[in-house]
Each structure stands twice: as C-alpha cells, then as structure tokens.
C-alpha cells in the first residue's frame, strides 16, 4: 500500500514568553501515523485542551511548519507545496472544517458566495450553470440544497446548518482528506448526530478519509476506524478505535474514558472524579521523557516506561 498522508516524526515547538525568559512549549512531539490510499477511514484524534490536536491539524494543512519531521502527501513533502499550482492541488485534496462555524464564516459574506469562491479557486469552474451544479451537489451530500442556502448570511442559518454548509464548502473541492477540528462541540445532541452520521457517509459513499478531532469519546467510538490519543503533545495510545476504547491501556486514556459522563445511570449524580487514574496519568506524564510507544500487535501502540 502507498501512503496518502504520512506524518513522519513530526514535532512542533512554540517559543513562549519574552526574549529573556524564553521557554518552549512542545505542542506536538514526535507524531507518526499514515493514512493509506484506497482505504478511506475515519481517523480520530482525541486529547484534552492544549494537547496539540489543532497544532497537528494545522501542520497537516500546511498552515504551520513542523519544527522536526516531515509530512508527506502522496509521497511529496507538503513543505514543498507552498506555492502556485502544487499548493492549490494539495489544498483541493486536503480540506479543513473548523470548530466554530460562526467564526469560520465571515458574518458579512453570503454563505453561498463562500462555497462558490471555493469552487472557482479550487475546481477552476467558471460557468454559472456548472458552479450551481457543483454547489448543489456538495450541499445535497450534507442534506442541504442550494435553494435553501442561496442568498443567506451566516446568522440566517442555524448552527447545525452552518456547520453542514462548512462541510459542503470543503466537499465542493472533492477532497481526498477532510480535517474536521471539533466539528460538533458547538452543536446540540440531535444535530451532533446528523453531522457525525454525515462524516460516516462521506467515508462510505464518497471515499473521503476524515481526520476527526474531538473531545467526545462517545461519537469517536461510534464512527472511527482508528484512534490516536494525545496527552500534552505526545501520542500515548493508538490503534483500532473500538479496541482502544473498549480496553484503554495508558493511564491517560483510561482517565479520559472514566471521565465520560454516562447516561445509563441518569439521575444518580455520578460525578466522582477518578482520583487514582488522575494520579496515574499525572505520574505517566512526569515520566514521559523516559517513555516510548510499544507495539502491542494489530497496529496497537501504547506509551510505556523505558
């Protein structure tokens, strides 16, 4: 198999503070994974706030340069795709969807104009009828239609519609990879499932690979093929999503799972924090410098001491 996207030993350090008291934040440390061509999947990245998920996504999109390592798309380093036609071809293939749809759209610009300009720039479509057809097709695949969206400003659509329009904007490029950074954290339960089900349809019907970034382990379990769990910039566990979430091995993965609010005992007020796991997770973090990812078979990796 050949790699569609290969994140190869990627780290990102940010300099923080003034010139004199310069410290470095390691936003991402030595991330490695690959998505294969011809096998579309939903690859989920989870982790607490500040664990480096967005930074990793931004590097994959070429919006941030890795401090170490390299990201390759179809074998070509994306750092070499920074200009002109090569850049445009890459951006057509790898499209983002951001967390807050209200921020992603300019409030003064009509939603259909956004989708239209994406179609013009990335697909090179110019004729009116072709533009409309491309937009309508993309909107239809997210359960909207051009008629519903045409002429509307962002505030005239509900949060869920706007998020679906944002996905349609990405789809108008006919991308190979969709990078969705917390696409559902702003929307309520019913719309959340509409969007999550949509990501699955994209994989199954359109063959799009999705990098799904989320805090929400329940939706991750529901749709992902593989999952990667990050703690303070480090990958602590990775593997088949169901396997990892049914039986997490790393203390931080266990803490995450234990912190998911359960609805099965609704009304019991079950909010006791998992203190032992918090402690274990903290200890693992303290000793993380002397740890490495250990192969467990079937593509499962767990960070361990040594």
């Amino acid at each position: 198999m050949s790699a569609l996207l290969h994140v190869d030993g990627v780290s990102k350090y940010f300099a923080m503070g003034g010139l004199l008291s310069r410290t470095q934040t390691a936003a991402v440390r030595d991330a490695n994974f690959r998505l294969e061509q011809g096998t579309p999947e939903i690859f989920t990245i989870v982790g607490e706030s500040g664990s480096g998920k967005t930074t990793l996504a931004r590097m994959i999109l070429g919006l941030e340069t890795p401090t170490e390592g390299e990201i390759r798309y179809k074998g070509n380093p994306i750092s070499g795709l920074s200009f002109g036609a090569a850049r445009r071809a890459f951006m057509t293939d790898v499209q983002p969807v951001f967390q807050n749809p209200f921020e992603a759209f300019n409030p003064l610009k009509r939603v259909d104009r956004y989708i239209e300009s994406t179609a013009k720039v990335f697909r090179g479509i110019t004729a009116r009828a072709d533009l409309d057809a491309a937009m309508d097709e993309a909107l239809a695949s997210v359960g909207l239609s051009l008629a519903e969206v045409r002429g509307r400003y962002p505030h005239e659509l509900s949060g869920g519609q706007l998020q679906r329009a944002a996905i349609a904007r990405a789809l108008v490029c006919k991308p190979k990879v969709l990078i969705a950074d917390e696409p559902v954290s702003m929307v309520d339960a019913s719309l959340r499932m509409a969007i999550v089900n949509l990501l699955r349809t994209l994989r199954d019907d359109l063959g799009v690979s999705v990098i799904y970034i989320t805090h929400d382990l329940a939706t991750a379990y529901y749709i992902s093929d593989r999952i990667m769990i990050m703690q303070k910039g480090r990958v602590v566990e990775m593997g088949a999503a169901r396997q990892v979430l049914d039986d997490p091995q790393h203390p931080y993965s266990r803490l995450l799972k234990a912190s998911v609010l359960s609805v099965t005992d609704a009304g019991q007020g079950n909010l006791e924090p998992a203190r032992d796991l918090m402690e274990a997770s903290r200890t693992a973090l303290e000793h993380a410098d002397a740890s490495r990812l250990v192969e467990q078979g079937e593509g499962r990796l767990v960070r361990m001491a040594g």
Binding site: A189, S190, L191, R192, M193, A194, V196, N197, L217, A218, T219, Y221, Y222, R242, L245, D246, K257, V260, S262, V263, T264
Partner: peptide
C-alpha cells in the same frame, strides 16, 4: 436516544 454510548455502535437517529 440520540446520545451515542461507548460500547454501542447501533445507528443513532438524528432529528
């Protein structure tokens, strides 16, 4: 009913 649960992959309805 629309809330997914870890350990359960049955399709969830969306409104």
């Amino acid at each position: 009913a629309s809330l997914p649960v870890i350990g359960d992959t049955r399709p969830r309805p969306s409104l």
